[in-house]
Amino acid sequence: MVTLQLKELGARYGSSTALQHVNTPVFHAGQMVAVIGPNAAGKSTLFKRVAGMLKGPGEVLLQGSRKGLDGICYMPQDISANARLTVYESILLAAKQQHQGWAVTDAELAQVGAIAASLGIAELAFRNLGELSGGQRQLVSIAQTLARDPEILLMDEPTSALDLHRQIQVLDFMRTLARERGLIVFIALHDLNQALRYCDHALVIANGQAQRSGPCGQVITADMLREVYRIKARIESCSQGTPLVIVDGVA
């Protein structure tokens, strides 16, 4: 089973340091990791660095992987693409990046169909990307990422454009996928209650550094919210025992 650990990871844009000294424990197959932090904290940079899209110091230690670094798949935040491609073509396009060659096989088509169906976007299959709403585009983007048969998934705010129903549907789906297929899923989230509900581990990024890391319940605390987000908040248990972040105001 795949494991992943980050050691002293850093990244630079030109002369400015965007990320430094990020260390994590060893993450195991099936784990969901919430990557949280304020805007421009370095979450996307961390994902790009882990995915190999940015160079920098440190190590991405991957063990037990069948695909190596190719198994690390990043899903960017930007969903503005309006290429004249159908949803089906765009998912197939993602799948074809690893199986080159002009011809499209029945197995590849079956894979695309299954992914579209699992995300509830099968009815959009032959709509052009430009005709989709923001939420629909986000689901297509998730489908494209899944089509690459990932072992490690780095999802940059995958629910930011989705309505509440779709957010829950996607997060449920991702958690099931992580457990069943043994993926390690990193999700950048702004909704900390969703992080508490769906993720096993939280990694707090602020000012380009990993400020805290650990089980969600231990990391998402009133102290952390005051320090990192500069808000006054309480963590209380709901009637079903799940911890909830209740925001009282700006600190």
Binding site: A114, A117, A122, F126
Partner: peptide
């Protein structure tokens, strides 16, 4: 390029092949 809803993977596969043709 919009076509009637084809939700089953087999239908979609056939739809894609038809589009290519």
């Amino acid at each position: 390029m919009t076509s009637p809803a084809m939700t089953a993977p087999a239908d979609q596969s056939a739809g894609y092949r038809a589009m290519v043709r």
